Simulated assay, not measured.
Amino acid sequence: MNLIDASIEARGFAPVSIALAVRTISACFAALHRPDNRILTGIGLLASTLDSAGDYAFALDARCLEDGDGIIDLLDWLEDRLSDDGAIVSWPNWGSVPARLIALANPDRHRRIVAAAADTAGRWRDMPQGHVWHLKQARANAMPCLCGSSVRVDECDGAMPMALPPDPNTTAQQLKREAIAGCQAWARGFGAFDDHAHPAQRALRALDRWQAPRSPAD
Rank of each mutant, 00 (worst) to 15 (best):
P98R: 05
L3A: 10
D208P: 04
A185S: 13
P92Y: 04
V114H: 11
A103K: 04
I25Y: 08
S215Y: 11
A6Q: 13
A118R: 15
R111L: 14
I88G: 00
H131Q: 15
L175G: 02
D84H: 09
A30M: 07
N2H: 13
A105N: 04
A117T: 04
G122A: 14
R177T: 06
L50R: 12
R209F: 11
W133K: 09
V97F: 05
N37C: 10
D157M: 11
R100M: 15
W91M: 06
L45G: 02
A200R: 03
F190C: 03
I72F: 06
S96E: 10
A59E: 08
N169D: 13
H131L: 10
F190I: 04
T120C: 14
Q174N: 06
P213K: 08
M127F: 06
W133I: 03
H198F: 07
A159E: 07
N2F: 10
F58Y: 15
W124C: 02
L82G: 00
D126F: 12
P168K: 08
Q184E: 15
Q211L: 15
A197K: 12
A103L: 03
L78N: 01
D194A: 13
A115H: 14
T120A: 07
Q201P: 03
D218E: 14
C147T: 03
S96V: 02
N2D: 09
R111D: 09
M160W: 01
L164R: 01
G68K: 08
P128C: 03
G54N: 12
A159N: 02
A62D: 05
N37S: 09
I71G: 07
W186P: 00
S83E: 11
T41K: 08
P166S: 06
I88Q: 01
R112K: 15
G189C: 07
